[in-house]
Amino acid sequence: MIRLQGIERIFDVGGQQVHALRQIDLDINAGDYISIMGPSGSGKSTLLNIIGLLDRPSAGRYLFEQHDITALSDDEQAQVRRERIGFVFQFFHLVSRLTAAENIELPLILSGMPPSQRRERVAQTLKAYGLGERAHHRPEQLSGGQRQRVAIGRATIIEPGLLLADEPTGNLDRASGHEVVEILEQLNARGITLLVVTHDPELGQRARRRLRMVDGAIVEDTSRST
């Protein structure tokens, strides 16, 4: 599904060049469950941003579903994100003035789906994540776990092939975190490719394939055969 070849990412910080990613080669198959771990500043999030098309590599080739993505314009990349990629963030990033239902509806609005079809999809999603009662609550009226479930609902309502989660449990208590992880793993079980960046070794160990990064390079790539 994803092939990275010789990916480099160099940041220019105050005139100094910082190598955030060095010569990353990575193949990800559809349906994979991968965790990326490593110390702060090791380039985990940068790698995730590049895979999620939020950032462009300084060098290298990126094939997404057999297409060379690096050659696309910003707006064409936006279309790929809109149709194929879902994001889950540590800080949820819900729009505070919109209700849970409206937050989940956002990607459908951006895709131009007519309102009648949207309503049904949103209702199904809310129900699937146990948020039926909370549809018309605003983010500040929801618990952390509920907020992250809204965020996952928003990321998956377009039925993306790839779900990227950056510290999805980093801002949650144990119980809510566990709940969220189970939802993500259920999604993976239904075929979605799941990529999780985390500090939490317990969460990281659950993935079938585990990458360890240090100083912008992948130093360890272990797969569990199940």
Partner: peptide, 9 residues
Amino acid sequence: LLKALGAPR
């Protein structure tokens, strides 16, 4: 967020 959700410029 809108950009991450695929809203073009």
